[in-house]
Design a protein around this nucleic acid. Structure first.
Lengths: 216, 216
DNA sequence: TCATATTCTGACCGTACGGTCAAGATGCTT
DNA sequence: AAGCATCTTGACCGTACGGTCAGAATATGA
C-alpha cells in the first residue's frame, strides 16, 4: 500500500498521468514554442483525450508554467556545486560539468527556458528579478573573493557567468545545429566528454585558474 | 529620377513598404515566435492593412523565410574578418567584435535565428547542411593551421567556434535576462565595450593566443 | 453492496487565425 | 487625357485553436 512505484489507485493514476503530460508538454513546447504548441498535440503525445488534459491542467498557461518552473529548479540545484568549492578550478569546473550534463539530459527544458527569455520572459519575470538576481550576485561575490585571493585573474564575474551559461546551454538550445555540423549524428559519450573538456579548458585557462593544480 | 533615396513612384512605394514590413516582422517574430506571431500584428506595426501585407508577401512562411535569410547573410558577411587575419588574436578577436556588434544592432534577427534552430530548423535545414557546414570546415582548417604554427594552444576548432557563437549571441538572445540582471537598464556604450573586452580576454587567453602581442 | 468522490471523454462553443477576392484608388506611359 | 499596370482595402471564408460541459465510467470507503 505504501509502495510509491506501483501504487495502484487514484493517486497513482493521477501521478502517472501528470508525468506523462509534463513529459509530452516539455517536448512539444520545446519543438514548437508556446504559440506553436497545441493542447491537442500534447494530449495525443501523452496518450489521452484533450478534455482529460484540461482536467489535470486547466489552461495552457498553467501547464507551461509548470514546465518552466521545473527546469529553473534543476538549474538552481545544479549550482550547489559552486558553493562548497575551494577555488575556481573546482567550483567553475564542476559547474560547467553540471550544466553540460543538464544540456545533455534535459535539452527540451533548456529550449523552453531559452524561448521564454527570448520572448521577454512574460511568465518568469519575477524569477529573474528575485531568485536569479540574488543567485547571480552571490556567485559574483564568490568569484570576486577568488580574484582577491589570487586564484584567478581579474575578470568581470557577470560576463564570466554569461559565458558559462551561454556555452553550456548552447549544446542544448542549438543541439540541432551541432548535430547537423556533426554529420547528422548525435554526440557519442566520447564527444560529450570532449566537449566538456574543451569548454572547461578554454574557460579555466581564460580566467587564469590553474594554480590549484588541476588534473589535466 | 535616379535618386535612390527619395525616388518617388511605384518602385519607391514598393521598397518602403517592403522595408517597413520586414522591420515589423523581424520584431514580431522575435518577440512572439513563428507560431505566436500574427499577420495582423505585423500589419498593424508596419502601418498597413493585413490584405496589403499579403500583397507583398503571399504567405507567413515566405515572410519568415526572408527574415531568416537576411540575418544569416549578415552573419556570413561578418565572418570575412576571419579570413584575412595573420593569427588568432586578430582573426578571432575581430570575429568576436563583429558578432558582438551584430548582437547589439540586430538582436531581433538573432532571436529569430535562434528560435528557428531550436525548433529543428524546419526552414533553413539546407543552409545548415551546405553553406554553414562548408563555412565551419573552412574556419576549422584555419584554426588548425594556427595551432600547427604554434600561434595558439591545441583546442578543438568546432568547440571553440561554438563557444564564440554561443557567447556573442547570448547578448542578443538572452538580452532581456541580462538587462534584468543589470537592474533593468540596457547596456551603455561603456558596458558594451566591457562585455567585448571580457569575452575576448577570456577566450583569447583560453586558447593561449597572446604571442602576436595584442594591444591590451 | 451501495453511496460517494474522482476520473474520463465525446460533443460542442466562441474566437482568432491565415488567406482570398473583387472592386476601387493611384500613379505611369504614351 | 486616356489606357494600363500596380497598389490598396474592407469584407469575407474555412479552419483550427483553447476551453467547457454534461454525463458516463471507475475506484474508494463504509
Amino acid at each position: 500500500m505504501e509502495n510509491p512505484a506501483k501504487l495502484s489507485g487514484k493517486a497513482a493514476i493521477r501521478k502517472e498521468n501528470e508525468n506523462n503530460i509534463l513529459r509530452a508538454a516539455e517536448l512539444v513546447f520545446a519543438e514548437a514554442g508556446f504559440g506553436g504548441a497545441t493542447m491537442q498535440l500534447i494530449a495525443d503525445m501523452a496518450g489521452l483525450p484533450k478534455a482529460n488534459l484540461h482536467y489535470y491542467f486547466p489552461t495552457k498557461e498553467a501547464l507551461y508554467r509548470r514546465i518552466v518552473d521545473s527546469i529553473f529548479q534543476i538549474w538552481l540545484d545544479a549550482a550547489a556545486v559552486f558553493d562548497d568549492a575551494a577555488g575556481p578550478v573546482e567550483g567553475i569546473g564542476a559547474y560547467i560539468d553540471a550544466k553540460m550534463e543538464i544540456s545533455r539530459s534535459h535539452p527540451a527544458g533548456s529550449k523552453v527556458w531559452a524561448a521564454e527569455v527570448m520572448h521577454g520572459a512574460p511568465v518568469i519575470q519575477d524569477y529573474l528579478e528575485t531568485t536569479l538576481r540574488e543567485w547571480t550576485q552571490g556567485r559574483a561575490k564568490v568569484i570576486r573573493r577568488w580574484i582577491a585571493e589570487g586564484k584567478m585573474k581579474p575578470v568581470d564575474p557577470h560576463h564570466l557567468l554569461y559565458m558559462v551559461w551561454a556555452t553550456t546551454q548552447h549544446y542544448a538550445d542549438f543541439g540541432h545545429q551541432i548535430v547537423t555540423l556533426n554529420g547528422g549524428k548525435p554526440f557519442s559519450d566520447e564527444q560529450w566528454d570532449a566537449a566538456k573538456q574543451s569548454v572547461k579548458s578554454i574557460i579555466l585557462d581564460g580566467i587564469g585558474a590553474t594554480e590549484t593544480g588541476r588534473a589535466s
